[in-house]
């Protein structure tokens, strides 16, 4: 099996300060990788470099295109990268309002991504939008409502539907359950896990919630002060952490 994504020596500097430095990893099809670390450790900077939202200062992000060729998404042209982010890639923001169009109906939010890849038949688009709202447990009766009329958890589920409707192969998630109350979190995690399994998605999830990665991620990358300090199988890193920072992180979680 060949990797879907090959990340080589990615670094990002903000003037003298370091965002993230010398990050390397391979992600295989169907794999879910979690990136954990405290605020300011560079995990969001890294995610944004990978997803093409930030220009890394060094390194390559090689993605396996549908024809099987590995292309560096850092040096590819802007239109090509935009095409990728509309089709094979998806990005789930922490704040749903960053990933949604708040003045467009729920159905429109989902349909827009379909239209961006060439769907034109209104009836089909609406049907598909309703189908996806159902999959993320939003009732058909809410299809014409705007996201502003939705609760935080519903907005997040709508954002996920909008992102997954085009059948992406790689999903980037930035704190997908952050700011939601725990019962809503559980529902969202269950939903995400099901979708990842069903669609065979690969995903990179940035979070500081260790319970979230235990449930969702196959493997883990721990960041501290802009560097990757530990990687490995998720349960191994959490149950037998090797690095001093990971040990501190794991032992700091409050038991419920």
């Amino acid at each position: 099996m060949t990797p879907l994504l090959k990340v080589e020596n990615i670094s990002k500097f903000y003037g003298h300060r370091i965002g993230c430095k010398d990050v390397n990893f391979d992600l295989y099809p169907g794999e879910v990788m979690g990136i954990v670390g405290e605020s300011g450790s560079g995990k969001s900077t890294l995610l944004n470099c990978l997803a093409g939202h930030l220009d890394p200062d060094t390194g390559e992000v090689l993605f396996e295109m549908r024809d099987g060729a590995m292309r560096d998404t850092v040096t590819m042209s802007e239109p090509e990268r935009r095409m990728l982010s509309r089709t094979d890639w998806a990005f789930v923001h922490q704040h749903a309002r960053d990933g949604l169009r708040m003045n467009v109906s729920a159905g429109g939010n989902v349909g827009e991504r379909l239209m961006a890849v060439g769907a034109r038949h209104y009836g089909n688009i609406r049907e598909e939008a309703v189908d996806w709202l159902g999959r993320v447990e939003i009732s058909e009766t809410r299809v014409d409502d705007r996201p502003t009329q939705f609760s935080g958890g519903m907005q997040q589920r709508l954002q996920i539907a909008r992102n997954l409707v085009t059948g992406p192969r790689l999903v980037f998630m930035d704190e997908p359950t952050g700011g939601l109350d725990v019962s809503v979190q559980a529902r969202l995690l269950d939903l995400l896990r099901g979708l990842v399994r069903e669609m065979g998605l690969s995903a990179i999830i940035v979070t500081h919630d260790l319970a979230v990665v235990r449930l969702l991620a196959d493997r883990l990358m721990v960041m501290k002060d802009s560097h990757v300090v530990e990687t490995g199988l998720t349960d191994q890193v959490l149950d037998d952490p090797q690095h001093a920072y990971t040990q501190l992180l794991v032992s700091s979680v409050l038991q419920v």
Binding site: G232, L233, D235, Q236, D239, D240, Q242
Partner: peptide, 9 residues
């Protein structure tokens, strides 16, 4: 046992 399962390194 955990080492056999890959849970401990």
């Amino acid at each position: 046992m955990r080492m056999i399962y890959g849970n401990y390194l």
